[in-house]
């Protein structure tokens, strides 16, 4: 029996669909596995293995990670560090982006490339001097040490991103405003900033997860356990609950909830940010 082109196409699509479905199921196995483990007791897991029906479902692991594991404190710290860093970096970067996008001046291209290079350098080249600097400024082992390095370091990517967005906004608007006697700052604040809202939303979503997920700076700039963000907190948790994997995995899931939340509700912006930010 001869197959028509249309039928062939249909069969091909079905084959691709099945292959992708299987791939995705295997791909997400760590997620399903972690979820299942977090609702089981360690005894159940050890005696029956992962691939058996759980004896019972328990929420205790989450409670243990939350209070005894101090995830409540760590998560709060993460927000205390992330939100000011995010606001600060967006505010400063939008000024940089505006200046680089809308004024011709000597050194414009050099500054732009400097910020691009700055977003790609390894943290290791900064660790020791920033550690020393924070000590000397008296902000070592405080939220401020972390806020400042995130705020300043993330300016590299944010300036790059916002400059490329603002450059696409036509100049006519600012020229008209200038003729009406508006100051340069007002042009920035009342024309370009509101028009950059989509870019700021995309960038904000992306940067939120990046700053929230930082680990190495928390390791270097904090000593007190009570100040640690959730990433460094998880490392402590791993040390304290080394054999209770169901508690550890429950902790990992709790630590992820804020970024998952952001992802589900702001997914559109997140992806726009990633693809826009990769350079054209």
């Amino acid at each position: 029996m001869e197959l028509t082109i249309k039928q062939k196409k249909k069969i091909r699509r079905a084959a691709i669909f099945t292959a992708l479905l299987l791939f995705v199921l295997v791909w997400l196995l760590p997620v399903f596995g972690a979820l299942l483990t977090s609702f089981r007791t360690m005894d159940d897991l050890m005696n029956n293995g992962f691939w058996r029906m759980p004896e019972k479902i328990t929420f205790k692991n989450f409670g243990t990670a939350w209070s005894e594991g101090r995830l409540n404190r760590y998560l709060l710290n993460s927000f205390i560090i992330t939100i000011p860093s995010l606001i600060g970096t967006l505010a400063l970067s939008s000024m940089v982006g505006f200046a680089l996008a809308k004024y011709k001046f000597k050194g414009n291209m050099a500054l732009y490339l400097m910020f691009v290079a700055g977003m790609l350098i390894p943290f290791q080249i900064l660790l020791i001097p920033v550690f020393k600097l924070s000590n000397e400024l008296g902000i070592y082992n405080s939220y401020w040490g972390l806020i400042m390095i995130h705020l300043v370091f993330q300016m590299g990517f944010c300036s790059f991103f916002l400059r490329n967005y603002m450059i696409t906004i036509p100049d006519e608007l600012s020229e008209a405003a200038r003729i009406d006697g508006a100051s340069e700052f007002r042009i920035f604040y009342q024309i370009y900033l509101p028009l950059s809202k989509p870019a700021l939303a995309a960038l904000g979503t992306l940067e939120f997860t990046w700053i929230f997920n930082d680990y190495i700076w928390a390791l270097v700039l904090l000593r007190d356990d009570k100040l640690k963000p959730v990433t460094a907190g998880l490392a402590t948790l791993k040390g304290n609950f080394i054999t209770s994997w169901s508690v550890l995995v429950a902790g990992a899931i709790l630590a992820t909830l804020p970024t998952i939340f952001v992802f589900i509700f702001l997914q559109k912006y997140f992806i726009k940010g990633l693809t826009m930010g990769s350079g054209k």
Partner: peptide, 8 residues
């Protein structure tokens, strides 16, 4: 997996 922290 991209939205999860490397530490997680």
């Amino acid at each position: 997996p991209m939205i999860l922290a490397p530490v997680v």
